[in-house]
Amino acid sequence: MPKVGMPKIRKPQLVKATMAVIGKVGLHSASIALISREAGVSTGIINHYFGGKQGLLEETMRVILRQHSHTVKTALKALPADAHQQRINAIINANFAGFQTQSEVTKTWLAFWSYSMHDDQLKRLQRVNEKRLISHLRLELKSLLPMDKANLVAVGIAALIDGMWLRGALTPDGINAQAAQIIINDYLELQLKKHQN
């Protein structure tokens, strides 16, 4: 029987190990044996806490999504509610900040993107994340643009964020957060000028 309080230690340890193993061998080869070895625990612990590999993968994605959501919300809380363009910039920048840009996290994101096409639960989590991003952007953009244009620009920004992530995850140097922020914020500026005139 696990000791009281151990889930608070073991679960994050196993999630971190999952990301490390996915970064080394990919999602398909990330076995329970490799993950438990990386975490320094028995394979039975994964089954106990997560019900197997699938449960651990889902929890890993949820952890990444929660951290990402926290980063975005923290950035938005620091700004006045009526500073719409600054808030959009903050949403963009939060997608390329801290935890989200760590090599193991980007590799895990990329693996989940690919795998979610064939897994209903991971697909649902990915859609929640996508809808949240577009919703945050649309909320701010509709104060600056007509609604149809706000929708279009929100989707454009989300596509650029995904594209910069994909390119960064596939290059040895990883995501260039500064370049991504400049490119996407430049697109935003151009769209605001185009549609506000």
Rank of each mutant, 00 (worst) to 15 (best):
G168Q: 09
G55C: 06
F50R: 05
N129W: 11
H28Y: 13
I46W: 00
L190S: 15
F99K: 14
A81T: 07
P146A: 07
K8Q: 13
T18V: 09
P12S: 11
A39W: 05
N47H: 12
N151C: 05
E38P: 02
L14R: 00
A154S: 12
E104M: 01
L133E: 04
N176M: 00
K149M: 01
V72G: 01
G51P: 08
L76G: 08
R66N: 14
M147A: 15
K107M: 02
V105R: 03
Y49P: 11
Q85M: 05
R127H: 15
F96Y: 13
A39H: 06
L170G: 11
F96W: 14
Q102V: 02
K24G: 06
D120Y: 07
A81Q: 13
Y187P: 10
A177T: 13
R37Q: 14
L145Q: 04
D186M: 01
K149I: 09
D119S: 11
K53G: 05
H68C: 02
A180C: 14
G44D: 03
A33I: 12
R87E: 12
L122R: 01
R138W: 00
Q196G: 06
A78W: 04
A33Y: 10
A78I: 01
N185C: 10
L57R: 08
H118C: 08
G156F: 06
G174S: 05
L141Q: 10
I175L: 05
K11L: 13
G55W: 04
S135G: 11
M147D: 15
L145Y: 11
A75I: 08
L190Y: 08
I161G: 02
L110Q: 11
G44C: 02
K107L: 13
R167W: 11
T108Y: 01
M147S: 14
R37V: 05
W113F: 04
R37E: 07
L170A: 02
G156T: 15
H70V: 09
R66D: 14
L27T: 09
S114H: 12
V153A: 03
N93E: 15
G26D: 02
I9A: 04
Q126V: 13
D119Q: 10
V4D: 07
I182A: 04
Q126I: 11
P7F: 03
T18Q: 14
M61A: 11
N47M: 03
I175F: 01
A94M: 01
L76R: 10
N89W: 09
I88N: 00
V21H: 10
E140Q: 12
A97L: 00
T60W: 04
F112M: 10
R138V: 07
A97C: 06
F50P: 08
S143H: 15
G23K: 00
G5V: 04
S36I: 03
K16D: 15
R127F: 12
N185I: 12
I183R: 06
W165P: 01
I183G: 03
I22W: 03
G26W: 12
I64E: 05
M164F: 15
A159T: 09
A39M: 12
R167F: 06
G23N: 03
L122M: 07
S103F: 08
G23S: 05
V25E: 06
L145N: 09
F50M: 04
T101R: 06
N129A: 14
L188H: 07
S103A: 09
T71R: 03
V72S: 03
E38L: 00
S114L: 13
N95E: 02
E189H: 13
V4S: 02
M19G: 12
K107H: 12
